[in-house]
């Protein structure tokens, strides 16, 4: 029972981290209609920049500066890369971001090497905040929750309560009309791209110390981010949040409890094959939830696409 509460917190941390990545991506996707394959690479850049800055000026300056650098880089990529490619259609844009992801990975390996780098949480946060039945919750996790929740509230406020937010929302649905009204839509696109990648940068900065900072970190998280925005619904901030938390909890609980498929199958009335070694379904009978945990989000995505193609909170088809 105690473990459930601990898992809820762990899942929340994972989910909120995912949210910071997917929030930017879902805005970019719905606005430009382009899947930014390099989004997770900006997350990786955030971690590496913060590591480099933390060597010279400490963790907190890294937290402050790294996302800004990543955001400016992202805006530059939109302004001088994507915008030029845009006129040739969606496929060149896809290829462009795909190439960019590979390029960033190679550059990171070139500068920082292929090993893990020693990017650690600041000492002031290296203690155990509280413990539930022997399971300690590190203060750093509480800090991660705090940062992500404030970012969500900030984003929600900007998007729904400010003039800029209104224009962005309008530009999402009717870019031509907004342009005709005299707003600089390309500038908005660039700004959203910059903020989106900057958010990915923040996620990298705070995830680097717990999940490890290594050249494969973008790849590990890359595809799950797309799954999140498809489940949540394109362009929906609430959708991104709900889907992220859902995925965070699903993967956490799946890994935490060893539920064997044998038990599930037996309980729904299947009978055990007599000769297990020769049964074609042997692998299914032997599976446990931790083994299939990582694919559950993809399964969920397929179900959502079949049942509700526009996602949980989305207004248009994926």
């Amino acid at each position: 029972m105690d473990l459930i509460f601990v898992n809820l917190i762990d899942g929340l941390v994972t989910g909120l981290l995912l949210f910071m990545l997917s929030a930017g991506l879902t805005l970019i996707f719905s606005m430009m209609g382009v899947l930014n394959f390099a989004h997770a690479s900006f997350y990786m850049l955030g971690a590496y920049f913060a590591y480099q800055i933390s060597l010279a000026m400490g963790f907190w300056m890294g937290l402050l500066l790294a996302p800004i650098i990543v955001g400016v880089l992202g805006a530059g990529v939109e302004r001088y890369g994507l915008r030029r490619v845009h006129q040739y259609g969606h496929v060149p844009e896809l290829i462009f971001t795909f190439g960019l992801a590979l390029l960033i990975e190679e550059i990171v390996q070139f500068i920082w090497g292929k090993n893990n780098v020693a990017y650690n949480a600041p000492e002031i946060l290296q203690f155990s905040a509280f413990a539930i039945a022997g399971n300690s919750i590190p203060a750093y996790k509480i800090f991660m929750i705090f940062i992500s929740v404030s970012i969500f509230i900030g984003l929600l406020f900007i998007l729904t309560r400010t003039r800029i937010g209104m224009i962005i929302q309008a530009a999402l649905s009717y870019p031509r009309t907004v342009e005709a009204l005299g707003h600089n839509v390309p500038l908005i696109f660039m700004g959203v791209f910059g903020v989106g990648t900057g958010l990915a940068g923040v996620a990298g900065v705070i995830a680097g110390p717990t999940l490890g900072t290594f050249p494969g970190m973008a790849f590990v998280l890359g595809s799950i981010v797309f799954v999140t925005i498809v489940i949540g619904g394109l362009g929906s901030l609430w959708g991104a949040l709900v889907a992220s938390l859902l995925i965070g909890w699903i993967t956490t609980f799946a890994a935490s409890y060893n539920i064997r498929f044998e038990d599930i199958l037996l309980s729904v009335g299947f009978s055990m094959p007599e000769n297990m070694a020769e049964s074609p379904f042997r692998d299914i009978w032997n599976m446990t939830t931790p083994q299939i945990g990582p694919i559950l989000p993809y399964l969920l995505m397929i179900i959502i696409l079949v049942v509700r193609p526009h996602g949980l909170f989305g207004k248009r088809d994926a």
Partner: peptide
């Protein structure tokens, strides 16, 4: 090579 976060395993 597929696990982003080992926390659930650590809890167990």
């Amino acid at each position: 090579g597929k696990i982003q976060d080992f926390t659930p395993y650590a809890r167990k």
